[in-house]
Simulated scan of single mutants.
Amino acid sequence: MPINALLGLCAPHDVNPSPLAAAGFRWVGLEVPLRCGGGGKVVADVVLVHEASAHLVVCESKSGSNIEVDQALRYSDITAQTVVHAVSLTLPHAVRPSVEVLYLGLEAHSERLALSLKSAEVPYPLLSVGKASVRLTRAEGASHQLRDAFSGPSTDLIAPPAAYIPFDHDSEVHEFVTPVRARLVQAMALGETDVSIRVLAERSCPNFLMYGQAARGQLTKKVQRAARQIATEHPGTYAYAEAPGGGEGYIRILRTPESYDARGRTQAYQALSRQSPRRRPAVDPNQLDLLQELTGTDDSEGDNVKERP
């Protein structure tokens, strides 16, 4: 929720207030690996930019109540130039960029997170996210751009933060099946005959191109596994094919509901959009039927029993 809340604050048309968007911020990267001084590395959950001042905000999200002290200290060794290069950002004018670190956390853990940041002796501000409000704490360590965006004590939310990222590279494969299935049906309706796994990943995963290279690779692999599962469920409609020379491969669309009679077209699309029912496992011929075990009979007696009306 903290990341989705942050993205909502940067979205100018969200149902909730968007103070970061109003202040001139937008997000430019997700899961971005960053080199630190001394050969260390961190992976920023979100990177924001305030283009008017060339100011960057590197965000680290915590769902629990603790921080990693070593990680927090590594963040202090990041330079603005490193972030600019990592997100391939083109600044609007020649100005020296600046950078700060912002931690995100749930409101229920805000006091514990603030104490942890204080114990680590890092000045990072903390954005505390609840279901009804968002609040910037430790604001004394924030840039004037962030303080201007959160000028009040808190920002009230009309609704819980929207799911800008409903799943990510850490999600289980089964969470990818429904969105991948929907994109395959969409491709089918558009008359496409082949859809690469890479294209499926871009269409199925929100903000796919904003992720760092490693995260994009993990997303693509999970989309591949979901697509192969769908092809197995519908062998007469889809087939997975390896790409020449290796790679993620692609899905071949063997037939579409467009070729059906018009009366069955809608039902065919609906069937392809639903999760296929699990097949009943094959019965072991050596295993007695439960009813037979209970009645003490077997099929061999059937020939000697007269048919009853």
Rank of each mutant, 00 (worst) to 15 (best):
A5H: 07
A5F: 04
L6E: 02
C10F: 04
P17T: 02
S18Y: 03
S18G: 11
A22E: 13
G24A: 08
F25M: 10
R26C: 08
E31W: 04
R35I: 00
C36L: 02
C36Q: 08
K41F: 02
V47T: 07
A52F: 00
C59Q: 10
E60T: 12
K62F: 07
N66C: 08
L73H: 08
R74S: 13
D77R: 15
I78W: 05
A86R: 07
A86N: 05
T90Q: 15
H93G: 07
R96M: 06
V99F: 00
E107F: 03
E107R: 12
H109S: 09
R112E: 03
L115I: 00
S119D: 10
V122M: 13
P125C: 08
L126H: 08
L126G: 09
S128E: 10
K131L: 06
A139E: 11
G141C: 06
A142R: 10
L146C: 08
R147I: 01
F150Y: 13
G152N: 11
P153D: 10
P153F: 00
S154A: 14
P160L: 12
A162F: 11
A163I: 00
I165V: 15
I165N: 14
D170R: 15
R183Y: 00
R183N: 11
Q186T: 09
Q186Y: 11
A187D: 13
G191E: 12
I197T: 08
L200Q: 04
E202K: 15
C205A: 13
N207G: 02
Q213M: 06
Q218G: 00
L219F: 02
T220L: 12
A226H: 06
A226D: 07
A227N: 06
A231Y: 01
Y238G: 03
Y240V: 01
E242C: 03
E242P: 00
E242D: 06
E242N: 05
G245D: 03
G249K: 05
L254C: 05
R255A: 04
E258I: 03
S259G: 04
A262E: 14
G264Q: 07
T266F: 12
Q270T: 12
S273L: 10
P281H: 09
A282Y: 01
Q287Y: 07
T295F: 07
G296E: 02
T297E: 12
D299Q: 08
S300M: 03
E301H: 12
V305S: 14
P309Y: 06
